[in-house]
Amino acid sequence: MNDRIEFRFSGSGGQGLILAGIILADAAAIYEDKNAVQTQSYGPEARGGSSKSEVIVSDSPIEYPKATKVDYMVALTQESFNKYIDDVKETGIVIADKELVTDFSKARGKLYVIDMVKSAREELGKVLGLNIIALGVLVEISGIVSHESIKNALIKRVPSGFEDYNKKAIEIGFKLGKEIKNNN
C-alpha cells in the first residue's frame, strides 16, 4: 500500500474544490488507468464554511476512501488550513495561497506559499479559476498525472464555453508550480 498517495483540497464552499478533486481523480482513473477515489466533506452551507475534497491515487485497489496521512494539501482559506492540516504527513507538502492564508503557526510538512490569487487577478482578470490554478500547481509539484491527462479531464468537466479560460488557468498553475520547484 506504499503507492497510495493522498491529496486534499481545502477551502470554503463555492471555491470549486470538489470539482478540482473530481478532475484530478478523472485524470488518474480514466486517462492514466490508475485507481482513484474522490470524496468530500462539507457542512450545511452551499457557500462559505470550510470544506474539503480528497483524492486517493494508487496502483492497487483503494479500500479506505478518505485521506488519513495526507501527502499533498491545498489550502485556500485560513480556516481550512488550520482545520485540516493535522493529518498532513511529516514529509507532506502543503500549498497555501499567499493572500488567503497568512498565519502559519500550525504548519506541518513542507510549506509552499504561492501567489495564486494574485496571478489569477493579473493573468485571468478575475479570481474565478483559482481552483484550477491550484490544481495545476498540485499536478506540477506532485507529478501524479501528466499535463495531457489533467487537461483532458479538465476539458471534459468544465462548462462549454469556458474551456480556454480553464486551460489558461491550469497553465498558470503549471508555471507557478515549476517556479516553486525550481526555487526549492
Partner: peptide, 9 residues
Amino acid sequence: EIIGHMREK
C-alpha cells in the same frame, strides 16, 4: 453517505 458521494471507477 460515503458510498453515495464518493467517486470511483
